[in-house]
Design a protein around this nucleic acid. Sequence first.
RNA 1: GCCCGAAUGGCGGAAUGGUAGACGCGGUGGACUCAAAAUCCACUGAUAGCAAUAUCGUGUCGGUUCAAGUCCGAUUUCGGGCACCA
Length: 800
Amino acid sequence: MDSIQKIENKWQKYWEEHHTFEAKIDKNKEKYYYLVEFPYPSGAGLHVGHVRSYTALDVLARKKRMMGFNVLFPMGWDAFGAPAEQYAIKNHIHPSVAVKENIKTFKAQIQKLGISFDWSREFATTDPEYYKWTQWQFLQFFKKGMAYKAKKNINWCPKCKMGLSNEDSSGGVCERCGTQVEQREKEQWMLRMSDYAEDLIEGLKDTQFQERTKLAQINWIGKSTGAEVDFDLKQVDKKLTVYTTRPDTLFGVTFMVVAPEHPYIDEYQNLITNMDEVIRYREQANKKTEFERTQLVKDKTGVKLEGLSAINPVNGKEIPIYISDYVMMNYGTGAIMAVPAHDQRDYDFAKKFGIDIIEVIQGGDISKEAYTEDGMMVNSEFLNGMDNKKDSIEKMIAYLEEKKIGHKKTNYKLQDWIFTRQRFWGEPIPLIYCEDCGWVAVPDEDLPVVLPNVAEYEPTDDGESPLARIPEFVNTTCPHCGKPAKRETDTMPNWAGSSWYWLRYMDPHNDKEFVSREALDYWGKVDWYNGGMEHAARHLLYARFWNQFLYNNHLVPNKEPFKVRASHGMILGEGGVKMSKSLGNVINPDDIVATLGADVLRTYEMFIGDYEKEATWSEQGLNGCKRFIDKVIRLGEKLNDYDNYSKDLEKDIHKTIKKVTEDMDDLKFNTAVSALMILLNKMEKMDSISKLDYRTYLMLLNPIAPHITEELNEKYKLGNPICESSWPSYEDDKLVDTEKEIAVQVNGKVRATIKVNIDDSDEIMEEKAMQEDNVKKHLEGKEIVKVIVIKGKIVNIVVK
RNA sequence: GCCCGAAUGGCGGAAUGGUAGACGCGGUGGACUCAAAAUCCACUGAUAGCAAUAUCGUGUCGGUUCAAGUCCGAUUUCGGGCACCA
């Protein structure tokens, strides 16, 4: 037999030449769309983690094709982003050159694995033919008023010289380089994602995402219900509005706190007698990064606004107002009512500043728990005696609404999407600024706005995109009035290109539309989307938002783009630690393909453990799979001339077909492989096996190890190539065991096993059980209380 | 602080409430070989025993049940996500 590498090459070539995996619209066939997150083609090349998720979906896709579905299983490249740009800055090469190189490497690596991607649909987000439509779609947002420019205090990475979204700077550090981010005010294009907060929660009901994924999304959106309440200012006829989730605790409010950026501070500066102190605090707070404000400083700081106070609307008491950075301007109203008896933060603040603490929920000891869930209302006039949180809240809201001092209100943590980056390597934002006409869209016929060739890829010192340094790019004419005008020089964030790529796969070469209606109607939703858990909140939310917007504007037929979302667990290095260059424990899939072959690597990665959990790499385990594949090859030496299932194997084969079919559907690849190993062990013990035995075996293994199974199928002339054949089927009546070995227990402890026929009556089973010597021994001198007989399962004798 | 998830041999991991440890790795002994590799066979949770067998055993403590790794209630540890979000 030829070498493994020769065989694998041969079949990869066969599939390519026969266009085996190229999907065509065929209305007579049911479609199925598998999507796996497209990679960022980094210089580091393919990781064994990629292999795991690509192989898993490849198994599903190959099986689904054999089951008669028209499967779309595409692959492409998410190629905009900082690493290529950093490389370009260092080496003065256009990022597109480096990207092309990396894509070439990546693609070759993936192709060597024999993944059944439809390469005829390949594209990169950096292709002008692709980003033309990313730009076009951005303009739809712009034209519908969903994109707006706003001065934002943004997270700024001083090292990358770049504005970062909250998402890209979580934890207060730049996601890419780890530098602490600063606050900087900048004009940014924003997408009104917060408008979609409710829809993004609601839409989850139309998906079959894993529960943990749904939860990650829901947490990120951060819906809360409560009330807005107006507090009158004492010194002026003006109200200070707060948001609270616990209006039932209003009688416990002893002070208020506003965010340092709250507009009232400037508005009433002539009333505030300690304005110097206030301004000093505000400046200090402004300098702090989000990280310092939220992570480091658990100790409360603040300044009382002297000369300004408020009136508690439910009891008319005068209460002080403070500014403190534990209140955020970008959530709620930027002001809170403080209930120190029942909120840890308010309590800490009140303790530090010596403010009254009034208990309104009995037993709500703040030192024991931050929040009081249940307990009787006290010191709260008309709420006194109530002991149900929900009812108290409702009663208070009804009161507030009747007195017109407040109303029910829902809030979301989800904020609008900062859609600009001051970088070179991203999609240019297709807008033009005209002194007379304001912001004007680049006309459709002028798209794409192509990234020019530049000498310097670094951002300018004032933080503008390098595009701002290119007069030929910047200076243009207003499409509206024809006067000289300037282009927007910011580019889109990395998330843009990945927010609609699954749509483009349906119709990747269309130069008239971003995707044709025909393709949209046929391919519909992505049936199965696989990706990393790290994208469960952000990418998935951006993509769903983008799609919902397109849907609302009649550009796509489905509101939700993805039906099922699954995520793979990480692969850890030997010893259970993360694979990293610095630890030197990175496994290069190429090395394994070159020595053991792709089939062994694929089998091992499917066998390594629960697909959705993390798994530890093991050289030894890999070896075991090598042995397994070798045994499958040697099994061919046992072939006889018969074309039916061998009698002694028939039942096992039917059982294995069922098990493998179901396990693959459930992503239980590890137990599917195990079932195949068990069947193999059985076949090895036979003197000979039939052609059909062997062919069926090879077919079941084919999705996991596609090359060697095709080769053996051909070598022994068992039938058509497996990739052109139908998935084996099983018959239920062939699965039934007529005889079974079951356990006999005495008081729940196994004392013997007996052989029973499947149709043995309870009496017969009991009788057989009683005849066992060891059972008799344990019954001696005891009184039988009762005997439990479960047909075909167990006999349990309870004695005293 | 809040929300998820996990915990099973020497290791990776299996187990619709019904014989815990499938399958694989590793280990021990044997066959083949001049020898080794490869391959094949047997054994392999702990303790006691020549054995039959017995006792213990799925992080810890309780509960439900004829029967619990599995269900319920506490609890510990680890992993992940969110977080001065009012």
